[in-house]
């Protein structure tokens, strides 16, 4: 990397790292230290091919997602990310208000597997179509669909308020093909 490339790299990091850090934080379930490590690893990879990247941001996002899923594979015994401390809801008396629900959702998201969470971030935060998710994460569209399905079923189990009928049903969350997100 020559001086000019290094200058452009530093400018890029200054401009885009907040947005990339947001994605990394969601991928790590709110663990900002892990998110910073993840982003730094991706940036170190980008340095190696900086002069050849047409779209550095797209490359970095792909590395972030793939790196995170690869990390999950390496640490396959540690399937759930450390749950970050989350702020308590202000209005406890209204336990199903929107603010409380969003906090419950964060806790639930943090308890998903890395892969499940990555799918949901791509689908619901990045608005990627299924085929793009499959390409980014290196899996089939069918796997994207089934993993998303299970992730959503697990969220519904963890946040029962999402589904008023859930309390009366016998859940087999995470495995049941009949669980749907409605």
């Amino acid at each position: 990397m020559n001086d000019e490339e290094e200058r452009r790299f530093r400018e890029f990091v200054a401009a885009r790292s907040p947005a990339l850090m947001r994605t990394a934080t969601l991928l790590t379930g709110g663990d900002t230290h892990a998110a910073e490590d993840l982003l730094q690893t991706a940036l170190a990879k980008a340095v190696g091919r900086w002069g050849r990247l047409d779209n550095p941001e797209a490359y970095l996002r792909r590395v972030l997602y793939r790196q995170q899923v690869s990390l999950w594979r390496l640490l396959s015994t540690r399937r759930e990310t450390t749950v970050a401390e989350l702020p308590d809801a202000a209005g406890r008396e209204d336990s199903t208000g929107p603010a409380e629900l969003r906090i419950q959702m964060r806790r639930a998201l943090a308890r998903l597997t890395v892969r499940q969470r990555s799918m949901l971030v791509l689908r619901y935060f990045e608005d990627c179509p299924e085929r793009e998710v499959a390409e980014l994460l290196g899996c089939s569209v069918g796997t994207v669909r089934s993993t998303t399905h299970r992730a959503l079923a697990k969220l519904r189990k963890l946040v029962p308020e999402l589904d008023p009928g859930a309390a009366t049903r016998d859940h087999e969350f995470g495995n049941s093909p009949s669980e749907v997100w409605k």
Binding site: A14, R22, Q40
Partner: peptide
């Protein structure tokens, strides 16, 4: 959640 993420240490990160 994304909006609440603290900014990374910019110059250090690069």
């Amino acid at each position: 959640w994304a909006e609440e993420t603290p900014p990374p240490p910019g110059p250090d990160l690069a």
